[in-house]
């Protein structure tokens, strides 16, 4: 589904990603871990098409298309979804209105008929249950005055509504208490299918107790320095990131 080859990216002239290689197949969940500043969020942003990041090398193929050649909204249309670490607020635009616009813009991109209000509301009701989101939240302005947990839950709700093929969760666990974490993770798990894939970017192992990854990659200093299965996450939790740093220093991990 997703093939990242030697991806390099910089921001303000500073190279952050120094050659990322990663392949994600349909049905897989990949976790990307790493210490602060290792480039995790940059990778997520580059895949989504944020302009602040300049891609300086490499390629990203998504379902046979050159992802880097597409505008951010086209990537969304193709089925790439990014759950933001810091979802923005848009005053005066109701959550429902925002979602309806998004759903229909994506449908238009896919040359599908727009959903009428009744169908849309029915789908919304169904998906609301998945992420246990309060209806009151949908009438409020997008993310305005939402608590940290509500914002993250809303991200997963949007993900449920937009039915992406590839979901990238950027530190979705940050700022969540354990109950919210469980709800969010449950939502993600329910949305999992053979046709879809996820990249879960996280700093801590605890999210992976709930969203069990097929593969775990450790990102350090702009490169994936270690890959493994979910046991790697546990090992990391136990040994800490210094273990990786030391391995890299010793030259054994590259």
């Amino acid at each position: 589904m997703l093939k990242i080859k030697d991806l390099k990216a910089s921001v303000d002239g500073k190279e952050i990603l120094k050659g990322i290689n990663l392949e994600v197949k349909a049905g897989e969940v990949h976790a990307i871990m790493g210490p602060n500043g290792s480039g995790k969020s940059t990778l997520a942003s580059v895949l989504a098409g944020r302009e602040d990041y300049e891609v300086t090398g490499g390629s990203v193929e998504f379902l046979g298309k050159d992802l880097l050649d597409l505008a951010p909204e086209e990537r969304a249309g193709e089925g790439v979804f990014l759950a933001f670490q810091y979802p923005v607020e848009i005053p005066g635009v109701s959550n429902t209105n925002f979602l309806k616009t998004a759903v229909n813009e994506i449908r238009q991109y896919r040359k599908q008929e727009p959903l009428d209000s009744v169908t849309f509301l029915n789908i919304m009701k169904e998906k609301m249950k998945l992420v246990e989101i309060d209806q009151a939240l949908l009438k409020r302005s997008l993310n305005e005055g939402f608590s940290g947990g509500e914002k993250k839950r809303n991200e997963i709700f949007q993900m449920a509504m937009l039915e992406p093929k590839l979901s990238i969760l950027d530190e979705t666990d940050s700022g969540l208490d354990i109950d919210a974490l469980r709800i969010v993770a449950n939502g993600v798990n329910k949305l999992k299918s053979k046709e879809t894939a996820s990249i879960v970017v996280t700093h801590y192992q605890r999210l992976l107790d709930y969203i069990v990854p097929d593969f775990v990659h450790v990102l350090y200093n702009g490169r994936i320095v270690k890959s493994g299965t979910k046991e790697l996450a546990l090992e990391l939790e136990e040994k800490g990131y210094d273990w990786i740093k030391n391995e890299v220093k010793a030259g054994s991990a590259v």
Binding site: A48, G49, R50, E51, A71, P72, E73, R75, A76, G77, F81, L82, F84, P87, V88, I90, F98, T101, A102, V103, E105, I106, Y109, Q158, L162
Partner: peptide
């Protein structure tokens, strides 16, 4: 904000 626009873009909404 550019953040607002990018957020919308990421949800499939053109600029």
């Amino acid at each position: 904000g550019e953040d607002q626009i990018f957020y919308c873009n990421q949800r499939g909404i053109g600029t």
